[in-house]
């Protein structure tokens, strides 16, 4: 009878789909890595735009409105008061800077990748339990629980926002590599042109050709590897350091603004949230104390 055979054949697909659904929206875990990303994003927003958005920089009504929204939203995000709403607010400010001020008003480099990535990351962190750790929200929740004679609320929640960050990073790496998968890039020509543009001027340095070719192939191979390898623990251990080194190199050699720092911060989303929690506990000596007691 064909039916049972078909059903048996579909079973692995069913299991794979179930596993994906569980990974995507069914995982609960520690909220600490989400909270660390929340705090890091607020600091990255400040490091990138606080100087440009000081009130005297653009004294037009819309400029002052943007600056006020920026500083209030990011401060709430940093201290963690109404954290998830603050994350949405911060993300909306980032998108307004990107689409409205960047594309409509031509304000540069607000249309660049780093702006979009920061805005999207803030929106995605709103889908995590980023309010449940290292936040004023957490402090107030603990106070409320103490007054009611209840145990402190668990620092846990659904991690689907972190999963979406993982998807975003994979898509970013894949299409960054896909765009470079052409002879023009792999031959080294585009890296040579970038090097001349920023460093050498119109004088082609000796030895650049072989270096550019090797670097081009390595960059594309690394980006594809990061796209498909970072989500999995078995391959992540080999790709983490190359990924961090890659972002460190482009941070110090090219004007990528906060892009590298944001990517490195978002790497936290790849790790099992409970494993991150355990590392934090060990660093704070909590795990050790528990073991001794």
């Amino acid at each position: 009878m064909p039916a049972p055979t078909d059903a048996a054949g579909l079973r692995p697909m069913h299991a794979l789909a179930a596993s994906f659904v569980h990974w995507a929206v069914g995982t609960e875990g520690s909220s600490r890595s989400s909270a660390l990303i929340r705090i890091g994003l607020a600091m990255l927003f400040w490091s990138r735009w606080a100087g440009e958005l000081l009130f005297y920089m653009d004294q037009s009504p819309i400029g002052l409105f943007l600056a006020a929204n920026f500083f209030v939203a990011t401060t709430l995000l940093f201290v963690g008061y109404q954290s998830r709403a603050a994350a949405v607010w911060t993300g909306a400010v980032g998108l307004a800077m990107y689409y409205y001020f960047g594309f409509q008003f031509g304000r540069e480099p607000w249309t660049h990748h780093h702006t979009y990535l920061l805005a999207v990351a803030a929106l995605l962190i709103a889908l995590t339990p980023c309010d449940r750790s290292y936040s004023l929200d957490r402090y107030l929740a603990v106070m409320r629980a103490e007054r009611a004679g209840l145990p402190a609320p668990a620092e846990r929640g659904n991690l689907w926002g972190l999963r979406l960050i993982v998807v975003q990073l994979c898509v970013l790496y894949f299409f960054a590599a896909f765009d470079k998968s052409s002879y023009a890039f792999l031959s080294g020509a585009r890296i040579e042109a970038i090097f001349l543009w920023y460093y050498a001027g119109s004088d082609y340095p000796a030895g650049l050709a072989w270096f550019a070719t090797i670097a081009s192939v390595a960059v594309v191979a690394l980006e594809y590897s990061l796209a498909f390898g970072l989500p999995f623990r078995a391959t992540r251990r080999y790709l983490l350091l190359p990924g961090l080194a890659f972002h460190a190199i482009i941070y110090v050699t090219l004007p990528v603004y906060t892009f590298s720092a944001t990517m490195v911060l978002l790497y936290l989303a790849y790790f099992d949230a409970d494993a991150v929690d355990k590392v934090i506990a060990r660093l704070q000596g909590i795990g050790l104390k528990e073991e001794i007691s």
Partner: peptide
């Protein structure tokens, strides 16, 4: 502009002369 293409540094360096 509504869609992010993630084409990194695709325009930088274009036009430079060696």
């Amino acid at each position: 502009p509504w869609l992010r293409s993630w084409t990194m540094f695709s325009a930088i360096g274009l036009g430079v002369i060696d």
